[in-house]
Write a protein that binds this DNA or RNA. Structure first.
Length: 466
RNA sequence: GGCGCGGUAGCCAAGUGGUAAGGCCAGGGUCUGCAAAACCCUUAUUCGUGGGUUCGAUUCCCACCCGCGCCUCCA
């Protein structure tokens, strides 16, 4: 089945094909580094990661740019309050963001682009828009005149034709000609962080950075542009207006937007006390893998209701997958090929691929894995899962983990070393053999307290960390 | 009000014009010195409400109710 994505621009799910061969030029909206990113942000960043991985696994090469917005009102406010330079302030949160991404095993885009490192390019773009009549100045700021861009609204499917009537409004009386016009360049404020450029002193508006950096690194027409739904309007709509006014070419061919994450059915907000960063969750004992799994398991276009029950349930599901992987890796199997389980493996692999091809339907892809897992366990118990079945089963599981990447546990600081665990297990086994159950149970409890769970199986003792 | 997304078992959630994937929880079982862990089994005559189209709708159409998002730089 061909790879298909839902395109916000056309409001349809359509076959994805890049403009040029197997190279995908993509741009995703990254964080504004004014604070720690929260799990709602990471829902979107995990979506980018799944998208990247599936494109790669589908045989595409990626040229992916993500911006780091390191100048905006909140950053300026906070940095000023702390008496820090912009760079000092944003470095802290940029680093925290990148650390969090690594913890969640998010692939790094081919390029991260910081807004403050592209100020001259933004000024040049604004200059060009001025020269071509797309802008006007007002009180030292430069605005984009959306009346000059008839297609404005095509992404968010809003009809602005009734609102766009700039001529009525007196420029001297109003900051903007039209309520929908947006700032390309903001007038300098005394005591704040400003840049001297060819269009004057001040600082860039929010939207221009994405247009400029995307076009600079990826060319006038992107294959794919993604972000959270809340960015559809105005951010992405404005990006389109600027970019297409600038280049005269279609800006992005496919627009993908991830839905919101809710907490207990409500929007996350500081006042409700349901506002979580990754640090908060790890502090409560949840693992990065559980967070990653939960955020990845609900298809990106569906609102995701985040709950602690959900995290706990993810942890259990991950355990089951890891147990199965371990069993596949270590089981002693009779030679031969079990026909039934083999055809199920092939079918499950196809189902997994088809589901991912269908606009990244991760929920159905997971369903395929678990269904196979159950049948394979039954076959393993029954002895109808044979040596030559191992490869296809591992292929499915490896493909699954190439997307979800949760099978290998993260290292935990302060954990009991493996050698120590092994020697305690040896002592327990000896005690059991001598039928000294008091001693063997004591060792078992000691290990449990240190976070190690023992599993007595026919093949011997297996252990894992809690 | 406009635009968009969604309402499927206790919770999370997939899906199709032909009679409901999967995960978690719960209950039952296998295994075990006892446990744990692991594994298996069971769990929606029903898909927000009311109409309509159809031989047949959760799936198509209409209306309504409810939740969420955007409509001033929130992923």
């Amino acid at each position: 089945m061909p790879l298909r994505f839902h395109n916000t621009l056309t409001q349809q799910t359509q076959v994805f094909e890049p403009l040029e061969g197997n190279l995908v030029r993509m741009y995703t909206c990254g964080p504004t580094v004014y604070d720690f990113a929260h799990i709602g942000n990471f829902r979107t960043f995990v979506f980018y990661d799944i998208l990247r991985r599936w494109l790669r696994l589908s045989g595409y090469k990626l040229d992916h740019v993500m911006n780091i917005t390191d100048v905006d009102d909140k950053i300026i406010r906070n940095a000023t309050a702390l008496g820090q330079s912009l760079g000092q302030y944003t470095d802290t949160y940029t680093k925290a963001f990148l650390d969090d991404c690594a913890t969640l095993r998010l692939e790094r885009p081919e390029r991260l682009a910081r807004a403050t490192e592209h100020i001259p390019q933004m000024a040049a773009a604004i200059k060009k828009l001025e020269d071509t009549g797309y802008t006007y100045r007002s009180d030292g700021s430069i605005y984009f005149r959306i009346a000059k861009f008839p297609e404005y609204g095509k992404l968010s499917h809003n009809d602005f034709s009734g609102i766009v009537s700039g001529a009525r409004v007196d420029v001297d009386e109003y900051e903007k000609n039209d309520a929908r016009d947006f700032a390309l360049w903001k007038a300098p404020k005394p005591g704040e962080f400003n840049w001297d450029t060819e269009v004057g002193t001040g600082r860039p508006g929010w939207h221009i950075e994405c247009s400029v950096m995307a076009v600079q690194y990826l060319g006038a027409t992107l294959d794919l542009h993604a972000g959270g739904v809340d960015l559809v309007f105005p951010h992405h709509e404005n990006e389109i207006a600027q970019s297409e006014a600038l280049t005269g070419k279609q800006f992005a061919r496919y627009w993908m937007h991830s839905e919101f994450l809710l907490v207990d059915g409500q929007k996350m907000s500081k006042s409700l006390g349901n506002f979580y960063t990754l640090r908060d969750l790890f502090g409560k004992g949840f693992t990065p893998e559980s967070v990653r799994y939960l955020l990845a398991s609900v298809p990106y276009r569906k609102g995701l209701n985040f709950t602690f029950d959900g995290l706990t349930s993810s942890k259990t599901a991950i355990e089951r997958l890891r147990n199965f992987k371990h069993r596949l890796d270590t089981a002693k199997l009779a030679p031969g090929l079990g026909e039934a389980i083999q055809s199920l493996a092939v079918a499950s692999l196809k189902q997994f691929r088809d589901a991912m091809d269908d606009d990244l339907n991760t929920a159905e892809a997971l369903g395929a894995v678990f269904e196979f897992l159950r049948e394979a366990n039954t076959a393993l118990d029954a002895g109808t899962f044979l040596e030559d079945n191992r490869a296809a089963a591992l292929e499915l599981l490896n493909l699954f983990d190439a997307v979800f990447e949760i099978l290998v546990p993260a290292e935990q600081a302060g954990a009991i070393p493996a050698e120590e665990v092994e020697s305690l297990i040896a002592a327990r086994t000896a005690a059991k053999k001598a039928r000294d159950f008091a001693k063997s149970d004591a060792i078992r409890n000691e290990l449990l307290e240190k976070g190690v769970i023992l599993e007595d199986t026919k093949e011997g003792v297996r252990w894992k960390r809690k």
